[in-house]
């Protein structure tokens, strides 16, 4: 998810010079393959620990998770194969569809708010302030754990004695039950997340802005382009790869909202914040239904894969107009 700026061609540097067999120094198609085993033995040693981690904690769990999704399993018993029954139940589980709905609502509010605000901030920083201090201040919320951000706002947005409601009342508006009312619960969760991530996302975009060569702007200003149209015609298209990456990452992250919900509303009021991951947690750990929880997790996984795929296609994130 990284290296927005520097992206040398790995093949070139890797194949460019071979050490063991200088004879085989060929430059053909990148990745055309190596002759012999190359550094395989030593490479295996180098990746061995990482391989253990990969196999034990990513590969095997993925397979096991898929297997469990076809079983009925409580943590204190043994899994029992029940075929696709979990999936059939999910299809007609109103709480699943509700979870999908509220999660999507969260994602949309979160992404729109966060991206617009962050983009605005990035441009402001780019134009008027490049100070590390300012960037540090904006980054401060991101350094807090989700749990801390959630508790902090749970307190500030408290219906009875929270400072925000004191302010709202002072202005002359009626108090808002931020966490208690069904309409507000999800937007509130999204606001908390936006608060935490806004500065960070802005910094990412800021870095992207800095990577745009000045010559492009100079050319535009010679053409007499106005600031607004420069933004739409030049800045945004050139920022697209960065923006695409940021969007993919935030969307995928948002679909997995859990921490803030778990320490504040815990799915409520009614089902307003019973987001997917919280619902999975509830089924698997509170109600000891690991099979059902795993099936839900498989579906979340599929959703994320599809969303990421569509986004990458749609935003053509791997290409820049700069090239």
């Amino acid at each position: 998810m990284t290296t927005l700026t520097k992206h040398p061609d790995p093949e070139l540097s890797a194949t460019g010079r071979s050490r063991k067999s200088r004879k085989s120094q060929k430059r053909g198609k990148p990745g055309a393959g190596f002759r012999g085993i190359g550094d395989l033995k030593i490479a295996l040693l180098f990746i061995f620990p990482a391989m253990i981690g990969f196999v034990l904690f990513y590969l095997v769990p993925t397979i096991r998770g898929i297997y469990l999704s076809f079983t009925e399993y409580s943590i204190l018993g043994d899994p029992e194969w029940i075929g696709v029954k979990n999936y059939q139940q999910i299809a007609k589980d109103p709480l699943f569809w509700n979870a999908l709905g509220v999660t999507s609502e969260y994602v949309v509010i979160n992404i729109v708010l966060q991206t617009v605000l962050a983009l605005g901030l990035a441009i402001l920083m780019h134009r008027v302030a490049k100070s590390t201090l300012i960037r540090g201040a904006l980054l401060l919320p991101y350094l807090m754990a989700n749990v801390i951000a959630a508790l902090l706002w749970f307190w500030m947005l408290d219906y009875q004695i929270g400072i925000v409601n004191q302010f709202i009342e002072w202005v002359g508006l009626p108090r808002v039950a931020f966490f208690g009312s069904e309409q507000w619960a999800i937007p509130t969760q999204a606001l908390i997340n936006t608060w935490r991530h806004m500065g960070y996302t802005a910094l990412l975009l800021f870095a992207g802005l800095q990577a745009i060569p000045n010559t492009v702007y100079e050319a535009a200003s010679i053409d007499g382009s106005k600031a607004v149209s420069t933004f739409w015609r030049i800045t945004l298209p050139l920022l697209r790869p960065v923006l695409a990456l940021v969007l993919v990452v935030t969307v995928i992250g948002s679909f997995q909202v859990f921490d803030t919900v778990a320490v504040t509303t815990q799915g409520g009021p009614i089902n307003a914040t019973r987001v997917l991951q919280y619902y999975i947690y509830q089924r698997a750990f509170n109600e000891q239904d690991f099979g059902y929880g795993s099936a839900l997790a498989v579906i979340l996984f599929l959703i994320l894969a599809i969303v990421a795929f569509i986004q990458m296609k749609f935003l053509r994130g791997n290409q820049s107009d700069l090239d």
Partner: peptide
Amino acid sequence: LFLGTMLVPPIFTALPNFLL
């Protein structure tokens, strides 16, 4: 393959990892 694991949502591996 390693990079692909970045796309795997933590909760997906969390259940089996918990069991492990």
